[in-house]
Design a protein around this nucleic acid. Structure first.
Lengths: 249, 249
DNA sequence: AAGATAAAAAATGAATGCAAAATGGAGCCT
DNA sequence: AGGCTCCATTTTGCATTCATTTTTTATCTT
């Protein structure tokens, strides 16, 4: 049986995407790595499904060697897992895995906030304020999708303002692992939680203006912790629903 | 010219070491990865030097394929870098790289402290207290080496008490990158800084006993920040000295 | 027809092969 | 001698091949 997975772009030519995680676009292996990482992060292969080595080779027009090299790296990054003699599978995150990942993300953002207070410029703060009010508009219009995007953007701006590439890379890595869940989790927000999140964002902005590093660090950690709770709850519900459906069918 | 690098253990038999970063000891690739990572982290190849692919293959008694897979992973972890068509080199960390790494470590330990306060048992605290007093003994006897080891142990215990495997893995990864420098940096401590560090450790223990998460988080960050300053200063001196020697010679 | 068994096909993991690129000298010129 | 070119050697990156293991399919048994 041919597993039907979405296309993966052109059969390798020259398309360096520049993802932010690393930049070895020069070699074939590097190019494959970037493409494959995006491909997996975007959720083109279902969780727990096996990664079709041969098929991907054909899609990319390459041999197995560079593909397998990329797979090892993705495994080290935690996106896939390698079963001995049974190839690569898309890593399925347990609830515990998600809790851990959210906490690590919280720690990294918390750190980013602290460092940002040391280095951020007035212009950068002004830009984040601008985003904040735009996001507030989406909130008032109950535009979840718009809200989510700006929200993401604000958090990335804070990380960028920390002026620490090592941190940014690590952040991008962990963000990639939970991308799918994060997205759906945000949409799961109850009205109540949404209002809370807005208030937290105001506190974040306030602490940032005052360059109150350790305060901002606390607020960001708590903010992410609350997100985590919402996400995990949502995910548990979703998985229960799936399980129930499966039992019926 | 044959580059002379230290031995690398037996030519692959069965020796799963279990390093704490990941555990794919099953495959040849996984075994190589563990060994090679340790080998590099321990500083067996000088900074900036090229990684002798062929030689390592012979030492390990394997072909280039699994070795190269391991190299890609180590590159992704930041231990080595891959130059297009020019193979792998031991990554040379710039001063900025070190600053960034120390800050990320500070963030991770800070997070660990916060999480530990939620989960740590009285027994674990007692164990850390025990270590603390043992370390104090080394401090009184001016035993740098003993002090350093216990110090390391205490920090690892805090990370372990956070009950977050994802965090522990990330911590181990970053710790590996700066292992060499960290070691020498600790020995560079001035008397003054050493006394300060002892006081900070007392504050850490105090906050931990009270399970004061965000307070501990702050203290740990500051503690690591101070370490960073000492380390960077020391490294700058060391590099200057090296440069001077090179200029003379 | 359900389940166990065996043979065929496909996949995985690692070694080997090969073209392109980089490195290291030997000879040459100034 | 110092620096250049050119060629042999080595190294690198990727494709291909090969031995195992797993998975699928076909067959047999009850």
């Amino acid at each position: 049986m041919k597993s039907l997975i979405p296309e993966l772009g052109a059969p390798i030519a020259q398309s360096a995407s520049g993802h932010g995680i690393d930049r070895q676009e020069a070699s074939l292996h590097g190019e494959i790595l970037l493409r494959l990482r995006d491909y997996v992060v975007q959720g083109n292969i279902p969780e727990g499904a096996r990664v079709p080595e041969r098929q991907l080779c054909e899609m990319l027009g390459i041999s197995r060697t560079p593909l397998r090299e990329a797979l090892k790296v993705l495994a080290a990054e935690g996106l896939i897992e390698l079963l001995p003699n049974r190839g690569a599978r898309i890593r399925q995150l347990s609830q515990r895995d998600l809790e851990e990942l959210f906490d690590v993300m919280a720690g990294l953002e918390s750190l980013a906030g602290r460092l940002a207070c040391e280095a951020i410029t007035d212009e950068e703060i002004a830009e984040i304020e601008r985003l904040h009010y735009k996001m507030y508009g989406h909130y008032l219009h109950r535009d979840m999708h718009g809200y989510f995007q700006i929200n993401q953007h604000i958090h990335e701006s804070i990380v960028a303002s920390a002026r620490n590439e090592t941190l940014r890379t690590a952040y991008a890595n962990f963000a990639g692992r939970i991308r799918r869940v994060r997205y759906s989790a945000n949409f799961a927000r109850k009205r109540q939680r949404w209002a809370e999140a807005m208030r937290e964002h105001e506190a974040i902005l306030d602490a940032l203006r005052r360059r109150a590093g350790s305060e901002l660090s606390d607020i960001l950690f708590q903010h992410l912790r609350n997100k985590r709770t919402a996400a995990i709850e949502h995910l548990a519900e979703a998985r229960d629903a799936t399980a129930a459906t499966a039992a019926e069918g």
